[in-house]
Computed example of a mutant assay.
Amino acid sequence: MLFFFRQLRHIFTQSHSISQQIRLSRCAFFQLLGYLGSCVVISLAAQSKYLE
Rank of each mutant, 00 (worst) to 15 (best):
M1E: 04
M1K: 13
M1Y: 09
L2A: 08
L2H: 12
L2Y: 10
F3S: 08
F3D: 05
F3H: 05
F3E: 06
F4C: 11
F4P: 04
F4R: 14
F4G: 09
F4V: 13
F4Q: 15
F4I: 12
F5T: 15
F5Y: 15
F5N: 13
F5S: 14
Q7Y: 15
R9G: 09
R9C: 08
R9D: 06
R9Q: 09
H10T: 12
H10D: 15
H10S: 15
I11R: 15
I11Q: 09
I11Y: 10
F12Q: 03
F12N: 01
F12V: 00
F12E: 01
F12L: 02
T13C: 12
Q14N: 09
Q14D: 02
Q14L: 05
Q14C: 01
S15Y: 00
S15L: 01
S15I: 00
S15Q: 04
H16D: 00
H16M: 00
H16G: 00
S17L: 03
I18C: 04
I18F: 06
I18Y: 03
I18M: 08
S19V: 04
Q20L: 05
Q21C: 05
I22E: 02
R23N: 13
L24N: 05
L24F: 13
L24T: 07
L24C: 08
L24D: 07
S25I: 07
S25N: 07
R26M: 10
R26C: 10
R26V: 11
R26T: 14
R26Y: 10
R26L: 13
R26H: 11
C27H: 14
A28T: 03
F29S: 02
F30N: 01
F30G: 00
F30M: 04
F30H: 08
Q31E: 06
Q31H: 01
Q31N: 07
Q31D: 02
L32H: 03
L32T: 06
L32M: 10
L32Q: 08
L32D: 06
L33P: 00
L33I: 05
L33N: 02
G34D: 01
G34K: 00
Y35W: 10
L36M: 06
G37A: 08
G37L: 09
G37N: 05
S38Q: 01
S38G: 00
C39N: 06
C39I: 11
C39W: 08
V40R: 09
V40Q: 11
V41F: 08
V41N: 07
V41H: 04
V41G: 03
I42G: 04
I42F: 12
S43K: 12
S43D: 13
S43Q: 12
L44I: 12
L44W: 07
L44C: 09
A45G: 13
A45S: 15
A45Q: 13
A45M: 14
A45L: 15
A46Q: 06
A46Y: 02
A46W: 04
A46E: 11
Q47A: 11
Q47L: 14
Q47I: 10
Q47S: 11
S48W: 03
S48P: 01
K49G: 04
K49S: 07
Y50I: 07
Y50D: 11
Y50T: 12
Y50F: 14
Y50P: 00
L51T: 12
L51S: 11
L51Y: 07
L51C: 09
E52M: 08
